[in-house]
Amino acid sequence: MADAKATSGHRSGGHAGGETRRDFLVVAANAFVGVGAAAAIWPFIHQMNPSADVLALSSTEVDISSVQAGQSITVLWRGKPVFVRHRTQAEIDAAAKDDAVSLPDPEKDAKRVKKPEWLITEGVCTHLGCVPLANKGEYNGWFCPCHGSHYDVSGRIRKGPAPKNLTIPPYAFVSDTVIRIG
């Protein structure tokens, strides 16, 4: 392509009508300036992304042995709250029953837990990031005081402006009583 242009430019002697070697040089030079400018700007944009030390803090281990059925604890993971809820059998049944109703962000309760009695979600409202209050709201799960979103006992959005269910963070059961989040 480059050769073709250069040759045709040579043949036409750099005169009107066709592309010339000079056109090619101008386009190539401008393209290089563009790429160079983008490469120079990138560090100044990327510096605002999470730094290495922030990324390094991205897993937390939690001992859940003392959390009784019906209780919910809040732990800090990557600077944000994570809810660890020990659900009662009644709550598990209620969540499973609601799989059938129409949900804004449909998801089966079974998909949202690894062990049905332990529900682990980020404590961050998917609307604008407030911390919802536990055991409140019309569905007895969580209620966000900021803009009035109601979540059920599976952390699913049921009513209000939030678009999505409470996010499930990556986690694993290290043992029966310890989970690692992140």
Binding site: I45, M48, N49, P50, S51, V54, S58, R78, G79, K80, H127, L128, G129, C130, C146
Partner: peptide, 27 residues
């Protein structure tokens, strides 16, 4: 700050990376 920066998470697809970029972290 949390609520206002989260406004940008409403943007489809690139919203969440933008918010992380604004925060320089996960909150």
């Amino acid at each position: 700050a949390t609520v206002i920066t989260n406004l940008f998470s409403a943007i489809p697809v690139i919203g969440d990376p933008i918010v992380t970029w604004l925060w320089g972290g996960f909150t």
